[in-house]
Design a protein around this nucleic acid. Structure first.
Lengths: 225, 225
DNA sequence: ACAAAAGTGTTGGAGATACACCCATGA
DNA sequence: TCATGGGTGTATCTCCAACACTTTTGT
């Protein structure tokens, strides 16, 4: 029986200073002519490597960050998922056995952009933050599906604690509200939002305020503990 | 690189006439002396078999039922998950390569006990419905963990539609409430429960009533559509 | 002085919760 | 006639949604 290969693919999300939700994509060169396609970062699972450990390894090699929010959300096992024509060129260049089936475990990772070190990637290719709405619909393999499922998973897991993993360590209430609005895909009432988030008692007002903004500077908050 | 094997394990739940939530376990004989252990039904994934299709195949061979509620909930990939001593005997008897790593995809299935045909199993072993609270803490491999995670998944996915997959096609409101109470692990107020479930308009009262009970017979309801 | 986002309370309505008694049947 | 679960309505409370103006800064 021909074996099934197992890989991990990561949906890595960041929330930028410009208040946009972005995903980290890998630019894969698929031939000698510098043609490329985008893909989610991923790799085959090591033979004695834990799945979570594998995801952490991929993340670390990509961002040099440890201890990210990192959660398995779904496994993708369509036997045809790596069989499309568009994907054969890359497979032939980089995989010993390009025709073998690959099942992949999807992980979602949240990173604070302030901690992210550009070009820390040890991938032999470029990593790039792409705004969600601008992601190509022609990612490698079934990565568009994986991405969509990852985002959907995040949306319905959204809890106040989750946002802590995307925001800088000090943030304004408007930034937090913004993030919520993007993830929930709906406008929220400012006064109600503030009432609610303060009531559940997970964030604390600091002494500091925003600087250099041409309007009333906002107080900065942090997550408790 | 030594390959990673991929399997599927199913947490199959039924809601009995005696109002207990039960899981379908396989009795595995682990040596020639008729010693056995219990395990979740599962199998290796066929080389060109879809994951969902594989789960459906296992379910069908076990219950002869099609079109069950069937949902992937988590993948378990601890490299040590099949390495415990208690599991070696069975592996040696039934697997060609008992030492190879196995990663397994967990599916949860809900079956209507009225549709279930006892002894339909084509497994060469016995299948047995076991009340959840009475399940051995020494299932094969990491199956206790898989079971617990499956139940937890179900609890927080609980929606009215879900219950339809566990109840007989005609049921009383008390049965429905009972099921909710078990899944949510809390008592619910009878009047409020009825108000709510009727308001969301997913069930319909039929003409029929319970028979042969030594108290006021309850109306039977069905799910709409 | 103007533009731009920060910050702040109150009210009405909907939905959730709490609660107790009579009814129909079989034994 | 008794035991058992079936079936029903109301009052209260809590939570959520709606809503507009003043403040502070940079330009």
């Amino acid at each position: 029986m021909s074996p099934i290969n197992l890989s991990i693919d990561c949906v890595v999300l960041g929330f930028d200073e410009d208040q946009k939700l972005k995903v980290l994509l890998i630019k894969k060169f698929i031939n000698e002519k510098n043609d490329y396609q985008f893909a989610l970062p991923g790799d085959l699972v090591g033979i004695s490597e834990d799945l979570f450990g594998g995801a952490a390894r991929i993340l670390k090699s990509l961002t040099s960050l440890d201890n990210l929010f990192l959660k398995q959300f779904q496994t993708f096992g369509n036997p045809e998922r790596t069989k499309q024509k568009k994907d054969q060129s890359w497979l032939k260049m980089y995989r010993k056995k390009p025709k073998e089936r690959v099942v992949t475990v999807g992980y979602i990772a949240l990173v604070k952009m302030e901690d992210y070190i550009p070009h820390a990637s040890s991938f032999s290719v470029d990593a790039e933050w792409v705004e969600l709405s601008k992601v190509s619909s022609e990612l490698a393999f079934d990565h568009n599906i994986i991405l969509d499922n990852g985002i959907a998973y995040l949306r319905d897991q959204l809890k106040p604690q989750l946002a802590a993993n995307l925001l800088p360590s000090k943030f304004t209430l408007s930034q937090l509200q913004n993030l919520y609005e993007i993830l929930l895909d709906q406008k929220l009432d400012k006064r109600n939002f503030r009432k609610n988030i303060l009531k559940i008692d997970v964030i604390r007002k600091t002494e500091e305020k925003q600087k250099g903004v041409s309007h009333k500077p906002a107080h900065l908050y942090t997550y408790k503990k």
